[in-house]
Design a protein around this nucleic acid. Structure first.
Lengths: 231, 231
DNA sequence: AGAGCCTTATGATAATTATCACTATCTAAT
DNA sequence: ATTAGATAGTGATAATTATCATAAGGCTCT
């Protein structure tokens, strides 16, 4: 067993406002009564592509990647989820099995609801379902648009984009520890590991970033933005 | 005015079963009472990126493309919608404006519901909302996965994939008229027009397909499938 | 019919990216 | 500590794709 199961009291849980604004106190109790939290350490697999979907998961703490393996051992990273994102988001209402694998990139805590309870609630409370639908379509829209953005850049622009993505969107700081390997960057932007490494080295030589292993410091952000936009 | 507005009787409309299986006859009447159909000729723009979202649209007849223009004049095609697909699908519940443009590739008929009526219905009928959510997440999943598939192929594989996509998924025949130009194929698969043309010529020279302008005949389908899969 | 514009087409060349080969560094496990 | 295996890093070369140039064919508009 690789997770702990402390019950948390939803009355004081900030997640309540984010997810269940149209759920009454009574309903909330039903939902939270069956809620558990699971914590995963960096690198642990949370869900496997193809696993049956039994739970409804959302991020409480940490960072995870959603990925899909294509044939042999080539993985593609689809997106990253941070606190308050749904994890089993994409297929949870339209598929019997998970379409993606989910892996912890940092020590992460996931809140787990029984999917059937959520589904039942969704069938009787339309406002709840509406909220859910809005959040799902926002999240999938973001994935689709992020993909479009990456695809129209070339190597340097893509690498620059990823650095800015972590700096601006995930960490909100210009100095951070990369939560993923060079290979995973490559899997996210659709380039080879070698070229990702080469590009990072080039940014370093051009004094755009400083690199200490996985620690990145963005020195010249406007330059990086310009590369991201124009190549 | 570039559309006709014949009311149609929903009692006998096959769309009823597809979209509104959890809506009562009375509710159906409310919805259909405000329904109109719009027809567009090949090439006509149905929606513009950035337009405010007032309607809820779905395909009754024809074929459309969803696209996004990135800066200058470079377009990216996101997906194609055929009958019974939602058109204003992606952003309709999560954005005030359309995130994509929609253009008719063939003469097309679109059913138009007032978005507020649909939203009101969604807020009071949870089963209806559930149905909608399932359909939305199915459709967006399909877009995301199709993108992943395309991105891991190279030029020849991508072109082969597109041909098979139209043959298998859109027309269900091995002989069909391409609904899009070579340039649009390029915008869909993220390659240049010249290389798309070159690749098609190469397939023709290798007796994999026959080309008469926009008319395509797939001669050696297993070969095309092999190229799509392995390059 | 002819002018202008877009699409299709093909070739030559340049740019970009992948592959292969080899080291170095780091991490986990004994 | 020491080895094994993954990750990071660099260079040379090959493969892939883009760019530029140029031309033929279609289409629309007058």
């Amino acid at each position: 067993m690789n997770y702990k199961t402390p019950k948390c009291s939803c009355e004081q849980c900030q997640l309540k406002n984010l997810f269940f604004s149209h759920v009454s106190e009574d309903e909330l109790f039903d939902i939270c009564d069956i809620k558990e939290e699971r914590t995963y350490t960096k690198g642990q697999r949370i869900l496997n592509e193809g696993d049956p979907i039994d739970d409804f998961l959302y991020m409480k703490e940490g960072l995870v990647k959603l990925s899909k393996s294509s044939g042999e051992q080539k993985d593609q990273i689809i997106s990253f989820s941070k606190p308050f994102d749904f994890v089993s988001l994409l297929s949870v209402f339209s598929s019997k099995v998970h379409m993606y694998s989910v892996t912890a990139l940092e020590d992460s805590t996931v809140c787990v609801l029984d999917l059937n309870v959520v589904k039942n609630k969704a069938q009787e409370n339309a406002m709840f379902t509406m909220d859910m639908m809005v959040r799902i379509s926002e999240a999938t829209d973001k994935i689709i648009i992020e993909n479009l953005i990456i695809r129209r850049k070339q190597l340097k622009g893509r690498v620059a984009h990823v650095l800015l993505y972590f700096a601006n969107y995930i960490y909100e700081r210009d100095e951070f520890e990369l939560p993923i390997s060079r290979r995973e960057i490559a899997e996210y932007i659709g380039m080879t590991t070698e070229n990702v490494i080469r590009t990072l080295s080039e940014f370093r030589k051009d004094n755009i970033i400083k690199i200490f292993g996985k620690d990145i410091l963005i020195v010249d952000k406007s330059r990086l933005e310009s590369i991201s936009e124009f190549g």
